[in-house]
Amino acid sequence: MFAEFLQYLFSGVTIGATYALVALGFTLVYNASHVINFAQGEFLMIGGMSTVSLLAMGVPLPLAIAMAVALAAVLGVALHKLAIAPARKADVITLIIITIGASIFLRGLAQIIWGKEFHAMPSFSATESVNVLGAVMYTQSLWVLAVAGVLVLLLALFFTRTLMGKAILATSMNPGAARLMGIRTQFVLMLAFMLAAVLGAMAGIMVAPVTLTAYDIGIMLGLKGFVAAAIGGMGSGVGAVVGGLLLGIAEAMTAGYISSDYKDAVAFLLILVILFFMPRGLFGARVAERV
């Protein structure tokens, strides 16, 4: 009985950690610009797919990961420079629509380059699973959790301890004042896109051995990441992590104890209930809009 519960918990936490990383990517860009970057899921796909191709070319795993993350970072900067920056005078809504367009473009490109098939990536460790109190855990899950933990910690340090992190926060609070203080807000925004791309790519690479990867894997993972970010409160780092884990665990428990048919329904029910009682999400800033 307990082993069963533990089994559901493990699969929930693994997928939840991925959602959390995607949600953090959303949070970063949202904080810097109030734009919801719907191309976030595509960075997962690019991370996973390029690592798979590089491995197939015989590149060793650590180098392949580094190259895939670098590629995603370049694409994140390109997304900002080529699609967002030229429209910087436009409404937030327009920018959001631009990111949707960019996501469709990236997906189409990936389909042409890599084809439509799913690809498998080997686990990072030789032993594929370990037994914990009667439940089985993927060693890859441990990798996902460890990397997610480290990334969250680094981000927290970045925002609280570095000038650049504080500049991003300042830009999110008041772009006009930040600019007057000498912060190059466009540069900050570009940095946010780059970091979001790196986070997305890392999530995509970590989770690929568990979920497999394909050109369209970003749609569902991106959407779930967005749900996680909304549950946690858009713009809150802690909220993104809690929202992601909560969503993953809720899904796994529903599939386990009720029926897998209702798994996605529960995820979306969760967002309805939480936003009904707490319109700004669990950890959203409780500030009133200035009128």
């Binding site: 693994t14 989770v207 568990v210 749609i219 569902m220 993972l221 599939a255 897998s260 996605d264």
Partner: peptide
């Protein structure tokens, strides 16, 4: 048991 076409983990089922 069932799973959705986009699901990435079926250990629970």
């Amino acid at each position: 048991q069932t799973y959705g076409p986009q699901d990435t983990d079926m250990t629970a089922q």
